[in-house]
Amino acid sequence: MFGLIGAWYCNELYYGKTLFPQGSASVEGEKIDLMLLITIAITGVVFVITQVLLFWFSFKYQEKDGQKAFYFPHNTKLELIWTTVPAIFLTVLVVFGLKYWFKITGDAPKDSIVVEVTGHQFAWEFRYPGADKVLGKKNYKLTTAKNNLGVDFADPASHDDIHINTTMHIPVGVPVKMVIHSQDVIHDVGLPHFRMKMDAVPGIPTTQWFTPNITTADMKKKTGNPEFNFEIACDQLCGSSHYAMRGVIIVETMEEYKKWLAEQKSSTILCSRTRPRFKI
């Protein structure tokens, strides 16, 4: 009983801080929120029933003089009931879960914007494909102090690519597809506001897409916090400064995004040598 009151109190106190009241900042995240609520409802009911029964039985059937335990070794009907009922509820959850899972991990829509995200100890870098909409090839063996992503400038597609540190700009309402790389250890692009997450693995590119549905500016108004920013948190232990591996996402309107993109310089200018030499 005390436990339940405690749980309810706790809920009052912290619900406000869980990001739920803010709503999800992505279209896909809203579905995850919905599923989360359904799961919480189902498990919540089970939780209350079983815990109440557990403590009630413990209280009611304490040892008393003259009380005799009831010999009740098994009952097939009862056992079948509580095998099938959970199985049915779980099937419902699995069906919902997998429907969203396939949608979210499926191919990104054709019109999505591609951004390459690269993690290394302990920062995030981003690369936009530029006007040709194709990312230039990379080869980690070409990495130098200046060309720190190891872009292969022999590939013409790389010449108009745009390379940005720490802060990623994306437009609202358009699917964004991230191609995720890591240069050293496993990192993880954690997007708590968008309800998304994907590991960055050295040697195996991964991918994740989502559709932001609210701009940073609107979110500042909604939360009443002028300092608000969407953050990228590294969610996979990656070394001593893991806790400080922070990236920022600025969601803006399409016009703002296009304007911002036009102001950025392409990678060729950033890199003085086009063919760095490297030996194995």
């Binding site: 995240g29 579905k31 995850i32 599923m35 989360l36 799961t39 498990t43 089970v46 939780f47 079983t50 815990q51 557990l54 779980l90 959850l93 699995v94 879960g97 997998l98 969203y100 899972w101 979210i104 708590p192 309800r195 998304m196 997450k197 969610d235």
Partner: peptide
């Protein structure tokens, strides 16, 4: 019971995207 029920959240891959 308490810990087992939260396993249902984490075992469902779509929710795991957020909770992992």
């Amino acid at each position: 019971i308490s810990g087992g029920l939260t396993g249902i959240f984490l075992g469902n891959s779509a929710l795991d995207l957020h909770l992992h």
